[in-house]
Simulated scan of single mutants.
Amino acid sequence: MKTTTILLSAGAVIVLGACAAGSQMGAGFPSADQAVASSFQNMQPGWDKRLVQDDTQKACSVAREKPSKAEAERIEKMNQAMKVVYPASGKLVGDWKKGEAIAQNGYGLRVGDNDPKRQTGGNCYACHQIQMKELSYGTLGPSLHHFGKLRGNTPAIQKYAYDKIYNAQAFTACTNMPRFGHNGVLSPDQIADLVGLLMDPDSPVNQ
């Protein structure tokens, strides 16, 4: 009986403490957004902008990544209207070997990735199977093995692959795939190299 009394008393203290803390929120305490923003220290200039959601991110947060059909169509149309920047050369299929290096590279946009001289990557293996010999790969996204072999290498498919990497939200609302081009994670030439990885007959993707 004594043990029960002690436990109940401790629980009461915890509840009362929580109520007291709750009553003080807004009176000198930072908001959740302020607390998160202040926790990022010694970041590169511009990192604070990543804490502000754009309209697509806000919509997907509200929908918890499962928007209604109407909302999904609205998000996709909104992103389809956004500008896609293509390589200055006009070529959408780049060097697959460079593309392989980009797919393997996970550097960029992580806390601590502060070297502006270091090339960012797509970290594609975190979500996709790309070639058969790869022993470790993610399954969040579909397998990309034999991508070009199965779909062909027409200009339309090349543009589809480029645009999908550039801004996946234009195709699938609230997808987990980053908007690599839209958010400036990868340059147009880097995206073209990834298209080369997917399309080139000599690429390990199509072996």
Rank of each mutant, 00 (worst) to 15 (best):
Q104L: 15
D55V: 15
Q190W: 02
L186P: 00
A70R: 15
L140R: 11
V111Y: 10
I14N: 00
I6C: 01
V93A: 12
M132G: 13
Q53L: 11
K69H: 13
Y160G: 04
C127H: 05
K149P: 08
S187H: 08
L150R: 11
L51Y: 03
C19V: 11
D200W: 03
L144S: 01
Q24G: 00
I14Q: 00
D200E: 09
K133Q: 14
R50F: 14
P142Y: 10
K2R: 13
K49T: 14
F171V: 09
M177Q: 02
R64K: 13
N114F: 10
P142C: 07
L144R: 00
K2Q: 08
L109Y: 15
L194W: 13
Y137T: 03
P30R: 08
Q158W: 09
A72Q: 04
L92C: 01
M177Y: 04
H145C: 04
P142D: 01
D113W: 08
W47F: 10
G184V: 01
C174W: 03
A101S: 14
M1K: 06
P30D: 09
R110N: 14
E65R: 10
I102N: 12
G22P: 04
D54P: 05
E134W: 02
M78H: 06
F147D: 06
D163T: 05
A103S: 15
D115H: 06
